[in-house]
Write a protein that binds this DNA or RNA. Structure first.
Lengths: 115, 115
DNA sequence: CTAGAATTTCGACATGCGTCAAAGTAGAAG
DNA sequence: CTTCTACTTTGACGCATGTCGAAATTCTAG
């Protein structure tokens, strides 16, 4: 128990983040720093069955299909969602690990130091 | 205890976020979706005493003072940091409430439903 | 193979964002 | 009041991003 067990605050407020970590985290954050992508991520993640067809997504936006596809690609490239084609349709599901990374950045961690 | 106590996942993956909530959250996320601002926020939040002089910030970046000031303003406008002038120097400190908002978006909440 | 639907890629455009140099503001020191 | 330092605002520039229309891709159905 000599080592620090700092529970004070979010990781980001515990010690200065390194430049490379900042670049990595910022890339992830940039992927969700858009209302459309946030809604898409939320719709995909909260859908019963864990999977959503793209065709069920486009209807809720005043955007063209190419634009939705563009946002989906950004989320997928960031590792936040995964896509799979089955027949005519493409289904997307959330990748919880990556989403948790986001939360971990700003959440006062209850984990012991070093974890 | 009859009501749901949904611990499955992040709020964003529990139910579809509303458009207005998405816009609000995206604005907050955009403020931290930049390596420089992420480092700035981290340096301010992790500093002993809870306050940092701007003059202690600029040295760690290969950026001009106006650029640092610009990023600081974005963080302040987003409500993530607060600034105070004392004499010649300006001191910034973190606003934990706003930072927690970010974490709450993506963290599997341990709070009971309805909270 | 042809026809058709779902989705992505491509090309283009307007807007937004990060950066700097120069000028402006606020307080300390003489 | 003048000068110096610390910081912010303004104006400008180039690059990135969100959006669309059109074309290409991938699969199903005859």
């Amino acid at each position: 128990m000599t080592a620090a067990t700092v529970l004070c605050c979010a990781p980001i407020a515990r010690e200065p983040i390194s430049e490379s970590d900042a670049v990595e985290a910022a890339a992830l954050l940039k992927a969700v720093a858009d209302p459309v992508r946030l809604r898409l991520l939320s719709m995909i993640g909260s859908h019963a069955g864990g999977e959503v067809c793209v065709c069920d997504l486009t209807g809720d936006f005043d955007l063209t299909a190419p634009t939705i596809s563009h946002h989906l690609k950004i989320l997928r490239t960031a590792g936040l969602i995964g896509g799979e084609r089955r027949g005519t349709w493409v289904y997307y599901r959330i990748v919880p690990e990556t989403v948790n990374k986001l939360g971990a950045l700003f959440t006062p961690s209850a984990a012991p130091a070093g974890g």
